[in-house]
Structure formats: C-alpha cells, structure tokens
C-alpha cells in the first residue's frame, strides 16, 4: 500500500468504495509468430484512456505502436493519477508465453487498459481499452484484438522504431527471423484513426519481394492475447 492509511480507514474505504482492489494480472500471447514489446497495463479513471478506436492516436500512443516505447504513455497516465504495471514480461513477450504481475488500483481507477506493440508490424499493437474492473472478487478472462495505430504506412519492411520513420524495428531475436530487401507493401495509410489491424500480408521471399515478413509464420487471426484478471 502506497497510501498511509490506518487500518481502520482502509477497511472503511474497502467497504464503501467499490473499486479499490488488488489485481493479479496474467497476459498470454496467443499467437505462434508475433512478439509483444513491453506491455503497459494501467488502471485509470474512466475519463482517461490509452487509445480509442475511431480516434487519432496520441503522440504517446504512436511512440508505443511504432517503436514499443511505453515510457511516454506511462508518464502521461501516472501524472493523471493512474496506477501502472509496466513491462511485466521484462522485455519481449514471446509467442505462446505468459507474463504476470500485480496491480493495486486506487479508488476511482476502475478502468483497465493495456497496450503493447506487435512485432513484426509497422504500427500494430495489442490493446484493451477501459475494461470496467469488477468489484466482485473472482477470476475474469478477456480476449484482445490486434489494432493499427493509423500513424504509419504498413510497408512491412525493416526500418525504424522512431515515430514518423518508415519500417519496423527488429530487436533480437527478430533480427534473425525477418527477411531482407522487401520493396514495401504500401506507402499509404489511408485510415489514420486507430482501427482493427488488417493483418500482415507477408510473402515467401526472405531476400526480396514486397515484404520482409514471412507469410506463413508472422500472421495472426484475432484474438491475439488472453488477459486473466484475478480480483482479490
């Protein structure tokens, strides 16, 4: 407990406030070939958010979706009074793997959100937007989709993780898994709002073609992740 509450006050709050709780959170990557960059999980007031479909991505979201940088989003949420769980996997969450962590949310932080970049993609991310944290103790499962931030053309080529720069980063072990020499699938991003990702195209040519992505390995169908929340 960060707050210096007396036991009496804590009990009083627990009985009257509906949403202060200790949350045990597990996130599983359900894909066979897509990596998640460090995850940001945030319990926040209803009026805050990490992302929303149909709206333009914030600069902070763009930095996460294009390069896996959650620092800006985490600071933004933290400054707004949210409780954050950052990088529970301690790096990339590999295909099929699970990351776990604890998150204590303050009263009023009754919405749970999550983001992490999907690799290899240009600006794809796994996302949860404002799931209402139940007040009733129990185990809850949520399935998450892959989103596109709408900030970068999906050229599917090696490149940069910096916002506004083309291509996607290839940190290890992706360096060894991704092709070279793709000429680029597209230079356009006609939908510049956050939307459901249309998926990777990929190709069978590791040294050329349009895409540096392997079409038989680094694709996905939704859902891409399962979140288990245990409300204590």
């Amino acid at each position: 407990m960060k707050n210096k509450l007396s036991v009496f006050t804590a009990l009083l709050l627990a009985s009257t406030a509906s949403h202060a709780a200790d949350l045990e959170i597990h996130v599983q990557n359900l894909t066979q070939g897509i990596y998640f960059t460090p995850l940001l999980i945030s319990a926040h007031p209803e009026e805050m958010m990490l992302f929303r479909t149909g709206e333009h991505a914030s600069a902070e979201l763009q930095a996460m979706a294009e390069g896996g940088n959650i620092e800006l989003l985490a600071n933004q949420m933290g400054n707004g009074g949210a409780n954050n769980l950052e990088n529970p996997a301690g790096g990339l969450l590999e295909p099929g793997m699970m990351a776990s962590g604890m998150l204590s949310n303050d009263e009023g932080n009754a919405s749970l959100s999550l983001v992490g970049m999907l690799l290899p993609t240009n600006d794809g991310f796994v996302g949860l937007d404002s799931w209402p944290i139940p007040s009733e103790p129990g185990t809850y499962h949520i399935y998450l989709n892959g989103y596109d931030a709408g900030t970068e053309a999906n050229n599917e080529a090696r490149g940069s993780g910096m916002p506004g720069e083309a291509g996607f980063p290839v940190p290890p072990p992706l360096e060894a898994l991704i092709g070279h020499g793709g000429t680029g699938v597209t230079t356009e991003e006609s939908n510049q709002t956050v939307h459901i990702h249309r998926g990777n195209l990929g190709d069978s040519n590791a040294t050329g073609g349009k895409s540096d992505i392997d079409s038989t390995v680094q694709r996905w169908l939704n859902p891409v992740a399962k979140v288990t929340v245990i409300v204590n």
Partner: peptide, 21 residues
C-alpha cells in the same frame, strides 16, 4: 518441424495471396 507449441492459428496464405506453391 514447427515451433512445437500450441497457439491460435495464423490463418492460411494460399496461392491467391501470393504463395505460388
């Protein structure tokens, strides 16, 4: 000869999506 763990399926590619073989 694959990753040797169960996960959700990524979908099929097909000749119509550029996998000629």
């Amino acid at each position: 000869d694959d990753v040797d763990f169960v996960a959700m399926h990524p979908g099929v590619v097909r000749q119509d999506d550029g996998k000629a073989d």
